[in-house]
Amino acid sequence: MSVAGRSLLAVTLRAALGTLVLVVILGPLLSLVVWSLAERWHWPAPFPQQLGLKYWLRMLQGDPLRALTRGVTIATITTVLALVAALPVSYLAARRRLPAGAAVLTLFVLPQAFPQLPVFASATVLFYRWNLAGTVPGVVLIHLVGGLVYAVWTLTAAFRAVGPELEEAALNLGASATRTFFRIALPLALPGVAASAILVFLHSLDEFNGTLLVGAPYVTTLPVYMYTASLGYELQIASVTALILMAPGVVLLLLLERFLRAEYLAFFGHL
C-alpha cells in the first residue's frame, strides 16, 4: 500500500473513532438536552412538536430547587465533617505515627469492598431505631461512609508527598509539633486537601442509594428527585435535573484536575 493510501486509511480510522466517541458521549447528552426542551413530543414523531423552556422554568421554582439546595447543604456538611475527621487520621497515618495505621486505613476502604445496597439497607434499619431515618444528619452519616474513604486516602497521600525533612527543619529551629503541622505540613498538602474536598463534595452531591434508603421521603436531594420524576414518566423533569446535576460535577472535576496529582491516586489502596 502506498504511503498516501496508508495515511488516508489512518485519517479515516481516526475520523470514524472520533465520530464514535462523539456519538457515545455526546449522543445521550444531546437527547437529554432535547428532552429537557420538549414541551410536547408524541410518538411516533422523530422530533418534539413543541420546544420551550417550560420545564426549565418549573425547575427554578419549588421542589427541584429545594432538592438542589438541600443536596448542596448536605454535601457541604459532609465535606466539612469528613475533612475534620480525616485530617488528623491521615496526617498520623502518613507519618506512620498512627497505632495500627495500616489496619485503620483498611477500615476506611472496607465499606467499598462490599456491595453497597446491603450495607446501606442494614444501616437504614439501625437509623430507624435511632430516629435518624428521614433526617439530614442521617443522610450526612450515610454520605460520610463513602466520603471518608475519599478524604482519608487522598489526604494520606497528600501528607505523604510532603517530605518529612521539611517538618524536621521546622522542629529543628524550635517549632512545636502543632505549629509545624499548621505552618508546614498543612499548607504544603493544601492541593490534596482541595482535591479531597472536591471528591467528597461530588460524592455526596451525586449519592443516590443511601440517600433514597435513609432520606426518603423526607430528605430529597437532586438525584432522588430525578429518580422519582423519571418514575412518574416526567422525562423532561428528569432530563433537566440530570443536566443541572452535571454542572457542578463538570466544574469541580475541572478544578480537581488542577489539584489532583497522579501520586495521590496511585496511593489509593497502598498501605
Binding site: E165, L166, E168, A169, L171, N172, I184, L188
Partner: peptide, 20 residues
C-alpha cells in the same frame, strides 16, 4: 531533650527549604 530544646541548627542534605 526534644529537637526544639537543643540549640542546634541542622542543614539538610536536600536543603529542606519550604517551597511555599
Amino acid at each position: 531533650f526534644p529537637p526544639q530544646a537543643r540549640d542546634c541548627a541542622l542543614v539538610f542534605q536536600n536543603y529542606a527549604l519550604w517551597p511555599h
